[in-house]
């Protein structure tokens, strides 16, 4: 292909439709230009998504592998006295616990000789699954309940409102902690309970959005021509609360990730998977001796939550300027 500069590919005077990709790219370009902080957030979020998907490649080691090295104090036939002084003296290999960050273990190793870099990389999976999953549940649940509550004002609305008041009267972390105690500590249960505890906030936001749309003339017009309630909700109300849905979804994620880390820190987190909150908790006791146990995991939480918050704020500004600063 030898295309000379300045050659016009489309004939003059004929409007060309931009492909969907081009439209998307232009929107992205404008987002990056106008919302530099939001773009940083987007970059961070994408980075963690890549980490989570390719954790097995990027993580370098398996997060559960216990590393062992040769024992420098090894003695073939230790006496009882020597064994009493150093119980490990009889074994030729020893768990490489609390190794400092090095070329082999970028973030060092923990108490059980596991690679911390691998655990931090794999921990992104739990955080993303919990954050996204809980937010999806909270928004979908909030949408259904919020719409019902706003549309059928009256006794139903009043009762739902009081139920939401109840959920908001209990501190979020204590509520989630209480709920997670009912079932076994699996990732799925964690996502479910976080999402359900998040209902209160999303329902309230979506309800007020639906209330304002319900008063608009096009809904009245739809009613006049005899549209059913279901049709009005799906065809007229739902498209007009889309922005609120996206905003509620994106802003919640960071909070759910933080809540998951806090629960894991308190010992109520999901069992059997690498979790940043658990790592911070495990390293806290010996923070002065082995700071790498705590620092990297805590930094990972901070950066991913920062990313989602920056992105959420920017999306809110772009999609609904009226909500700015709320």
């Amino acid at each position: 292909m030898n295309r000379s500069a300045g050659q016009i590919t489309a004939p003059l005077g004929e409007p060309t439709a931009l492909s969907r990709l081009a439209v998307g790219l232009r929107a992205l370009g404008s987002f990056i230009r106008h919302k530099p902080l939001g773009s940083v957030g987007l970059f961070i979020v994408l980075l963690f998504c890549v980490l989570a998907v390719l954790a097995d490649v990027i993580g370098r080691h398996d997060p559960d592998t216990i590393f062992e090295g040769s024992n420098p104090d090894y003695k073939a036939d230790p006496t009882t006295l020597e064994l009493a002084r150093n119980p490990d003296i009889g074994s030729p290999v020893i768990v490489e616990q609390f190794l400092e960050p090095s070329g082999k273990h970028w973030f060092g190793t923990d108490k059980f000789g596991r690679d911390i870099y691998a655990q931090v990389v794999h921990g992104s999976r739990l955080s993303l699954i919990v954050g996204l999953g809980a937010s999806v549940i909270a928004v979908v649940g909030g949408l259904i309940i919020g719409m019902l509550s706003a549309y059928y004002s009256g006794v139903v609305d009043l009762f739902i409102q009081r139920l939401i008041d109840m959920l908001q009267a209990i501190p979020f972390l204590i509520l989630v902690f209480a709920l997670t105690q009912i079932t076994e500590a699996s990732v799925l249960n964690m996502v479910l309970w976080l999402g359900i505890a998040g209902f209160a906030i999303t329902t309230r936001l979506i309800r007020s959005a639906v209330l304002s749309v319900r008063e608009s003339e096009f809904v009245t017009a739809a009613k006049v021509i005899g549209a059913s309630d279901l049709r009005i909700m799906v065809r007229h109300v739902l498209p007009n609360v889309g922005a609120v849905l996206i905003i509620t979804f994106s802003i919640g994620i960071g909070a759910y990730i933080l809540a998951e880390a806090s629960l894991s820190f308190l010992g109520a987190g999901a069992q059997g998977v690498p979790s940043w909150g658990k790592m911070v908790q495990a390293g806290r006791a010996s923070l002065d001796l082995h700071p790498w146990l705590t620092v990297f995991a805590g930094a990972a939480i901070t950066v991913i939550v920062l990313g989602f918050n920056l992105l959420g704020d920017a999306l809110r500004d772009v999609l609904d300027p009226r909500l700015r600063g709320v």
Binding site: A261, V280, Q281, L287, D288, G298, I301, T302, V305
Partner: peptide, 22 residues
């Protein structure tokens, strides 16, 4: 200032408190 405020919101308290204690 806004970035700092959002950063303070993003950092888990158990982590910042642990590092401050250290």
């Amino acid at each position: 200032l806004r970035t700092l405020a959002i950063l303070a919101l993003a950092a888990p308290v158990f982590w910042t408190a642990a590092i401050a204690t250290l």
